[in-house]
Amino acid sequence: MNLFDALTALLLVLLAWRCLIVPDLFRSIVLFVVFGLLLALTWARLDAPDLALAEAAIGAGVLGVLLLGTWRALGSPRRGETPSSSLPAGLRVLSAAGSAVLAGALAYGLHLLPGTGDGAGTLALETLPLPATGQPVTAVLLDFRSYDTLLETAVLLMAVVGTWLARSPLLDALSSEDATAHTPVMPVLMRLFAPVLLVTGAYLVWAGAYTPGGAFQGGAVLAAAGVLLALGRRLGTAPDAGWLLRLLLVLGVLVFIGAGLLLMPAQNAFMAYPERWAGLIMHLVEYTLAVSIALSLLLLFTGRPGLRGISG
């Protein structure tokens, strides 16, 4: 461990601490985004570029946007305008002590762990030439443990439906007045950035098979393009989702389940693909998943079921 790593680790803890204790909600959000970026850097230092990309795109990017959107929906409260934590002091001390004990126990436990040589991870690297994708993380996500990935994509559908349900009783009366809407620079920014984001997102999905990247990372970048358009008032919300939007939202899951179920009788196992077609199917799954993920994340941001284009 060199000085740089030690500094990063220290800064991570410091940022997390500050993020929790600052009284100003806005600052807390900004600190959280910075924390996410630093965490991405940490993953990169740990030779986990896939996680770094995912953390930067989703942890810092999408989450930051969602938090800021929520902050605005609350009426942009500044210091002192939000009720501070109502926990009694005794309970706070107790939870702090509990967290400290937990952290200590985990640290000691991790310190005791042996480095196992015969686990699933090693086996995955040894088996790697077999599957159609050459990238180890993609191979685990889309082949060895594709079942987990498939189930996780269903979570997004639940989250989107959940937001619609949570929003309607609370936030329907909210005004959507937005300071960024009418300014000469926004159209320029959109014209310049939206295509770049689309290309970058598509590249990340495509590259996922060979180098770090994939449907989640690429989808998050694609969603960022949508968020930009929504902020610039080129993409509006609608009270109901049209059939095409609904189809695109679940396309990834449908293709994933469909490929698994249709080929099951022939392969005698769910999501076992014939060797000739495996590459093609996995690419199809990645692309459709990326579209569904991007749209789900975008809808989490806009908070309403439907989308509509606004011509400028």
Partner: peptide, 10 residues
């Protein structure tokens, strides 16, 4: 799942 035996698969 996926025809992969444990510990690789699920």
């Amino acid at each position: 799942m996926g025809g992969w035996s444990v510990p690789l698969g699920i």
